[in-house]
Amino acid sequence: MIKAGQIDKGTALLIKGQPFVCIEREFVNPGKGSAFVRLKLKSPSTGQVLSETMKSQDNAEDITVEDRDLQYLYNDGENFYFQNTETFDQIDVPMKSFPDYEYFMKEGETYRATFWEDQVLDITIPSKIVFTVAEAEEAVKGDTVQGATKYVTTETGLRVRVPIFIKQGEKIRVNTETKEYLERVNS
């Protein structure tokens, strides 16, 4: 048990028997009232987000989690499939629990996953990933304006704004948080 005031982003809790991960936490002290925390909790199995307001002194049931490395294999539109790099067990994770993650899932890449028992509660995406440009618009001839940009699509389907000199088949490094182009990678 922990006090609600101790819950932080990333804390895993059991609510009515189901695991949830705190994705947002805000302290609130209403005028002339006790201290409360306002939480947004996400269910890793359904993607459902719960808003919960608890008194800082309320008890909450926390759960012990463990990080493991998983290698990404593929997805079938419903699940992501990973392999545990130590045990070689195959693990499936519902895609709807991690919206937009598909754009950052590269075959063969290793991701850190947070487990509670055998359930994946969270997947950490590296802050920078190198992608291959799968589709690139042709740069318009005569377009020599400095700083001109265009859109390309990576092998994972992510659309990124890049300088016009980037061509199909080239590798680019992308900031996964902002989805911004960082640099061209020479292979």
Binding site: V28, P30, G33, S34, F36, R38
Partner: peptide, 13 residues
């Protein structure tokens, strides 16, 4: 007060 604030802070504020 606490029950009122639970409702107020979750839904109203």
């Amino acid at each position: 007060d606490d029950t009122f604030n639970r409702i107020f802070l979750t839904y109203t504020e």
